[in-house]
Amino acid sequence: MTDALMHVASLHAHYGLSHVIHGVNLEIKPGETVALMGRNGMGKTTLIKCLMGLLPASSGAIRLRGQDIKSLATHSLARRGIAYVPEGRGIFQNLSVKENLLLAARAGFEGRMEWTYDRVLDVFPRLKERLAHGGQQLSGGEQQMLSIGRALLTNPDLLILDEATEGLAPLIARDIWSIIGIVKKSGISSLIVDKNFSALAKISNRSVVMVKGAVVFDDVPTKLIEQPKELKTWLGI
């Protein structure tokens, strides 16, 4: 428990009066890739919003490197090494591709500078051709690359990807998965939400399944594949 990068314990959260997160426990170790799965409306995005400080948790604990971060503001959380690629990508439409990237660029939590503007452009050559374009002129795949590149430029320890390949053509989605592989290799922990079960199972160290705001499975992906009945009820596969 002490070696966890992020540790979530009995977390509860509400949207207005409705109780959406019911006592979630979750642990992400340094360098670990965790898949967060579940049908729509089971609380994945809500849980992520809590982790990012975008939705206040009602009770429970969120610890980062052992420190309680539950009541910290979003920007302080980001400065402590959490980066966020939201559902819908969150590209600044009125900024150019270059500005979207430069805005985010900074040293990480302990001054790490592994991801620089140039390195991001090397990993995403397609963005290089579009530096002067406005955020709204990009295709879905390019937007997702920009969103991930921008997140990496904050030199995070934990990358949270919500709906990593949603709405992307299979070929583009494959590019995104290979980029996630590069991220994994560089030692950054990640928490990934996606509908593509097999791609997630291949890349992640652990699978976490949420049903109605609670975690019902948390183990290695191979264990999950061995449970076809549960897969059907939990994920509809």
Binding site: G53, H75, A78, A83, P86, G90, F92, N94, L95
Partner: peptide
């Protein structure tokens, strides 16, 4: 740039570590 970003998407600006307040 930060001002324009905040105008476009307040949550995302915060999530990049910018103190929008």
């Amino acid at each position: 740039m930060m001002i324009r970003a905040g105008e476009s998407d307040r949550e995302m600006t915060k999530a990049l570590g910018i103190n929008i307040g």
